[in-house]
Amino acid sequence: MLRIHKGPIIVGAIFIALLPWLFGRMPALEHYTPLMVFAGIYCLLTIGLSLLMGYAGQISLGHAAFYGIGAYASGVLTIHFGLNPWLCMLAGALAAALVALAIGTPALKLKGHYLAMATLAFGIIVNIVFREEVRWTGGPDGLVGIPGLSLFGFAFDAIVKYYYLVWTVVAVAFLFTANLIQSPVGRALRAIHTSEAAAGAMGIPIARYKVVVFVFAAVLAALAGSLYAHFMNFINPGTFDLFFSIQLIIMITLGGMHSLWGAMIGAILIALLSFEWLHHFGEWEIVVYGLVLLIVTIFFPQGLAGLPKMVMERIRR
């Protein structure tokens, strides 16, 4: 789980790079390119969450709050203050880091159920703020007219351009996180997950590591939120509610939270499910999500990423 091989990374990168071209050749799949933009944004969220939940073993049921903080920083600062979008993105990441530090420091002293409920409550409170501070956030109607992104005169105005922008950020985040996991920090996180007492006895500063990972996950989520806001040019509180926090949990559970690859697979699958495939289910959507989550939790605790290993073990037996 700690080793992340180079081969699959290169194959994955080439696949992602060629995907828009492939979709462009297949009219029936053309609309999958924007879906993959959302998938990339979700990947940013799940990479951080996988590090927090899968590697460090700390549950967060309010991660949509940081996603929202990024998006609203971008929205509010561009619309009310006319700031440069990149500056807003930075401000959003900084705000998320500060909030994560303020909430994470006391919250991460809690374990299991208590941490779950603290993060859940935090997520709902932030969402209520988005809804109630109408003067700044536009309330339930949200903010319209958030500008797009451009760099040195090059505007990311076409979906394909934005696709490459998002996936470049995902690639950077993935490589950084993969390196982190394979470093002593990663091993320390695994030790905390296995036994906090033992990790502490070995001299690992448990509290500091947990908070750092929480802040890191929050910053990635805020970046994802900014990317979302500048892509959609419109945000409203519904995108960042409790249900989305739970959707994130579904993503990393389905993919397998003990693996970065699992986090990516889960994010892509749920993005495609929620925007495309689940339309056929209509009203059944919530039930389907619940069933998927329950079945994976009961029968495939390692998620899809753990499936090959599970099958191999079955065959060998």
């Binding site: 919530i286 039930v287 619940g290 989550l293 329950l294 939790t297």
Partner: peptide
């Protein structure tokens, strides 16, 4: 925790 969340969704 995740199992009870799943059940509540169902």
């Amino acid at each position: 925790i995740i199992a009870t969340v799943a059940a509540s969704m169902i």
